[in-house]
Simulated assay, not measured.
Amino acid sequence: MRNAAIAPKKIFRLTELKKTVETWKFLSKKIVFTNGVFDILHRGHIYSLSQAAQEGDILIVGVNSDASVKRLNKGPERPINDQDSRALLLASMVLVDAVIIFEEDTPFEVITAIMPDVLVKGGDYVVEQVVGHKEVLANGGQVIINPIVEGFSTTGIITKMRG
């Protein structure tokens, strides 16, 4: 039986994450980073996370803090789930190795601190729009855009619930 306390141990502060990433890199692990709000987890999130996990050995997920979600203007009721709940759900997933909540509007500070081998963004972005793409590419890494799973979005779910 798995220890229920494992998930919180996968939620890091930046200083702790940097040290852990150094260890993983020393062990020649390929580090993958992706980020998002992950307000109401749905099929599109699961697809994107599973695709990201296949790109390396370690998957780190950056989660927007509640304050940064408010600044993204996703709507007055967002986030639906608080940052700790969203981080815990992600940390509970087997394919996720580490979760970090970031307060800034973008995960630039996290990305430049851990310098992942692969930077993954789900959605309708192009590489040049992905925060941290220049730094990761300059460091010999790669940037991957996962396609959107049509018909699945948190905004769509909220709209349907209000229906």
Rank of each mutant, 00 (worst) to 15 (best):
F38W: 04
L59Y: 03
L27Y: 12
I111Y: 03
I100R: 07
V126M: 05
R13L: 10
E77L: 12
D66M: 05
R71V: 01
I11R: 09
M115T: 14
R43A: 14
V69A: 06
V96Y: 07
N64M: 10
M115S: 12
L59G: 02
F102C: 10
I148N: 02
D84G: 08
L95N: 14
A7P: 13
L95E: 14
N64A: 12
E104L: 06
Q129I: 00
I58T: 13
V136Q: 11
T155M: 00
M161S: 06
I80G: 03
R13H: 08
S85F: 08
V127M: 04
S92C: 12
H133P: 07
N146Y: 01
L14S: 08
P147D: 13
G36H: 08
L59T: 06
F38E: 05
P116F: 03
I111V: 14
V99C: 04
K29F: 07
K160L: 01
L137E: 15
D66R: 03
Q54E: 14
N81S: 08
H45E: 08
L14F: 05
R13N: 03
V21L: 13
G156M: 11
P116R: 02
G163L: 09
I58Q: 04
H42I: 04
S85V: 13
F108R: 15
I158E: 02
E22C: 09
R71L: 13
I46H: 00
V96M: 12
Q51I: 01
E103V: 00
E135F: 03
V32C: 11
I100T: 07
V63T: 05
K18G: 00
N3P: 00
G151V: 08
K74N: 07
L27I: 00
V37Q: 04
K18P: 00
L137H: 02
I40T: 03
E135P: 00
H42P: 05
I60E: 10
V149C: 09
A87N: 09
G163K: 15
K74I: 09
A52W: 03
P116V: 01
G156S: 08
I58G: 01
F38C: 10
N139Y: 06
D66Q: 01
N146K: 01
M93L: 15
F38A: 05
V21N: 12
D97A: 02
M1T: 11
S153I: 14
E77N: 14
A7K: 13
L17I: 14
L41C: 07
A113T: 15
L59C: 04
S50P: 01
